[in-house]
Design a protein around this nucleic acid. Structure first.
Lengths: 325, 325
DNA sequence: ATAAATATTCGAAAGTTTTCGAAACAAAGA
DNA sequence: TCTTTGTTTCGAAAACTTTCGAATATTTAT
């Protein structure tokens, strides 16, 4: 299919079709729409339709701990969606120190799109993504470039709900324990924490905020600090952090939830079976993966990309309880 | 196969094929993809007599829960090893109900080898593997066919060590709680349990053995049964099962480890942070993945395949203690 | 209301860029 | 060396874009 053929089909000249497809000013809105609609209906694109149905799932620091909890289910959802559209899913790995040239990676391997997971905000890849023109799906991070689609769980509202729940239980001194300060996920969860405080009319106290990484030891080490500050509740950026913190509090002689309430994020299997069971936020990783594919596919097809957030659900369990009088 | 042949097959000239394969700028993305796809499908490579280096990691029931804990780190190890030898890793999924024709899968996608994970003993794929002649790496399962390499953690000796440890603590009534009865992993761990009993001179009692699946609820539901049987220790086939069982015992008014000792398998993150911390067996999933690749590569190169087991390490923590007098 | 001025729309033709093959060229085996 | 295989150059054709003018519509001035 060429513009010539489209032109004859619609009774126009090739030049007009060209102009219509390029949003030139000297074509009426009417004919522009006629042309665009017809082109879409026959799947015509000026930028030759790419037929390589190979997508690379690029993990940054695949071997890092924090990826492992979410990586698998997300990959599952992604692969299954890709499968139904007969796309091949190739796994690649890179470190944040020696990132690949993405353009080259795609050219050499004939990938039509990239799904990137595990990057931090200060990663070199993010820099590269700001100017790239390859179709990219960036998970749990954000870049302004319109060629880059972004997806993440709804971190903000869910954490805000957790804070609201804590305030409802009478808590006033509420702490926040983040993971890596440079991860967008922690940043967003912190925003949710702030919004929850503001809506609950509680003043923000920067002494109640700490950062670390996404491991239990991060929580374990922060327990002393929060105990000193005298908080009655701590919102953690992940379940693992929360579990570490609860164990840390135990060592300080504080009992959860009687003395301090603690919440997590992720709803890992442990969250339900840990004692006390964790108040947390449930993420639908499978759906995250599926949607990531759908968006990436749209981007590959040349459509405008979007940034979307996937619904999350706060789950209230035993690790949060009314504040001590 | 030469570029000339590819050219005639695709109705192009040799020069165009050459340019396409070299990512030259004066070939349309469309034809470049056509060429690349065809070249891949027939295993053509510019580097003389080098076959396509593509391995498929086939997950059976990828979406099933039990895969998720081990799948990611194993995949990580596998991918990294594959990377150093410049093999491409393609992810595929199948259900145990509608398994693919493996031969066809490899031919159509030009895979030079297959890594299969997540199968059960009664899976249809296992049947097919008995007669196949494609290079296959089968993880955590076993087939007699010499074309099929098998790898698994050392389930037998590690569980035997756990049993030995329990007997050393004075336990005599030791139970075994397995996962899926049809998984080779559970079968092997059960043998380890038996060997431990035999070596410790303790008589086997079939009433002390139960099966279920690899989830916490399996453990939770089995607690009543084991309490009734009056066992003083239970060896579980996974950490998740062990955690479920411990929680179940708590509901029955039994305390772990004071009243009953419980051990797990896998050494998941939780094992360390759960209270009581779990006596378990540490599996090196990364190394499992790496070795899986190495073996598969040897099989691809035409060498005889082996069945190898990866060293595991029992870890003794708080969930096992001396038997009650 | 009418004419003039201006704006819009579209196509023919000319101009560019892209695509791809023929042929010359280079490299690697035999 | 000769042959086979892959690469590069260059030109022709195709695909697309731009220019410019004709036809028509719209606005403004009288």
């Amino acid at each position: 299919m060429t513009i010539k053929e489209i032109a004859s089909k619609l009774g126009l000249s090739a030049s007009t079709v060209s102009k219509a497809l390029n949003n030139a000013s000297d074509v009426s809105a009417n004919t522009r729409n006629r042309v665009n609609n017809y082109a879409r209906s026959v799947g015509f694109s000026l930028h030759r339709n790419q037929e390589a149905k190979r997508i690379c799932v690029l993990f940054e620091n695949m071997d890092s701990h924090s990826n492992s909890q979410v990586g698998y289910p997300v990959l599952t959802g992604f692969q299954q969606a890709a499968n139904t559209y007969h796309y091949e899913v190739v796994i690649e790995h890179c470190s944040d120190k020696t990132p690949p040239n993405l353009k080259k990676l795609c050219q050499e391997n004939n990938f039509c799109g990239l799904m990137i997971m595990g990057t931090k905000l200060n990663s070199v890849i993010i820099k590269e993504l700001e100017t790239t023109n390859i179709p990219v799906m960036l998970m749990d991070s954000y870049v302004k470039n319109p060629r880059v689609a972004c997806i993440s769980s709804d971190n903000i509202n869910s954490v805000a709900s957790i804070v609201e729940h804590l305030i409802g239980l009478g808590h006033k001194k509420i702490g926040f324990l983040g993971g890596d300060k440079h991860s967008i996920v922690t940043r967003e969860r912190f925003s949710g924490y702030l919004i929850g405080l503001i809506e609950g009319d509680i003043e923000f106290n920067s002494n109640y905020v700490r950062y670390g990484n996404y491991t239990e030891s991060c929580g374990l080490e922060a327990a002393d600090y929060f105990a000193e500050q005298g908080v009655t509740a701590v919102v953690c950026a992940s379940d693992l952090i929360a579990i570490g913190l609860i164990n840390g509090f135990k060592k300080c002689g504080l009992h959860v939830p009687d003395d301090v309430s603690v919440s997590g994020f992720d709803n890992l299997d442990i969250a339900r079976y840990f004692i006390p069971s964790l108040t947390t936020v449930k993420q639908d990783f499978i759906s995250l993966g599926e949607n990531a594919f759908t968006l990436l596919r749209q981007s590959i097809k040349g459509n405008k990309t979007k940034r979307i957030t996937i619904h999350t659900e706060p789950i209230f369990r035993d690790s949060t309880a009314p504040a001590k009088k």
